[in-house]
Amino acid sequence: MIDRKLAPYAVLLLRVTTGALFLYHGLVKLFVFTPAGTAGYFESIGLPGALGYLTMLAEIGGGLALILGIAARYVSAALVPVLLGAAFVAHFGNGFGWSNPGGGWEYPAMWALVQATLALLGDGAHALYPLRRR
């Protein structure tokens, strides 16, 4: 049974936590690896460099949107393919295990499921721009 009184706050915690992690990862790509370095990494694994820029934008913009609660249901759904791409393109060859060199595929796959869950749950409490069900 779901506690209807507390569930929106559980969603809030999950939304803000994942938003902060996305924001962090996007900012690391921007300020530490640099946009050119991120694009170069994507090219080194056989992907278009432009996808590195789009990933950075998705992580920073998506992270901020989740933290603030702006269309969080749609943002979470849009981040699922980004995470599945990370899991199965960038990390699958590293095996199962986050401590493997380069990180394993299970960690981004788990985050994809978390984002899918948020998309199903909704915006949660204190969302700045929640999407209302009609």
Score class of each variant (00 low, 15 high):
L14C: 10
A112P: 10
P8R: 09
A109S: 13
N94S: 05
P108G: 14
R4F: 06
G49W: 09
I45M: 11
R133Y: 09
V16D: 10
G49T: 07
K5W: 09
G19P: 10
E43M: 10
A86K: 11
R73H: 12
H25I: 00
L64S: 04
G95P: 03
H91Y: 00
S76A: 13
L113H: 11
L12P: 09
N100S: 13
A125V: 07
M56T: 12
T38F: 15
A116P: 01
H91N: 00
A71F: 11
A58R: 11
A87M: 00
L121I: 10
G122T: 05
A125E: 13
A10D: 03
F96Y: 01
G61L: 07
G26R: 06
G85H: 04
N100H: 01
L121W: 15
V75Q: 04
G62N: 04
Y9A: 12
K29C: 02
L121M: 12
V11S: 13
A86D: 06
M56A: 08
P101R: 01
L21K: 00
A77C: 02
P130A: 09
F42H: 08
A10M: 11
L131G: 14
G93Q: 03
L64E: 02
W111D: 02
Y41R: 06
V114G: 03
L131I: 08
G61W: 08
G46N: 03
L6W: 08
K29A: 06
G52A: 11
L6N: 11
L30D: 07
L47Q: 13
L51Q: 12
A86P: 10
T38S: 15
F88S: 02
K29S: 01
G85C: 09
L6D: 15
L113S: 07
V28R: 09
I67M: 04
L21I: 07
L57A: 15
I67H: 01
G37I: 04
K29W: 11
L12D: 14
L84T: 03
G52T: 08
A109M: 05
R134F: 07
V32E: 06
R73L: 11
H126P: 07
L12M: 14
A112F: 06
L118T: 13
A90P: 04
L13V: 15
V28S: 04
L6T: 15
G122H: 04
F96R: 01
A77W: 11
P130V: 08
P101K: 00
G69K: 02
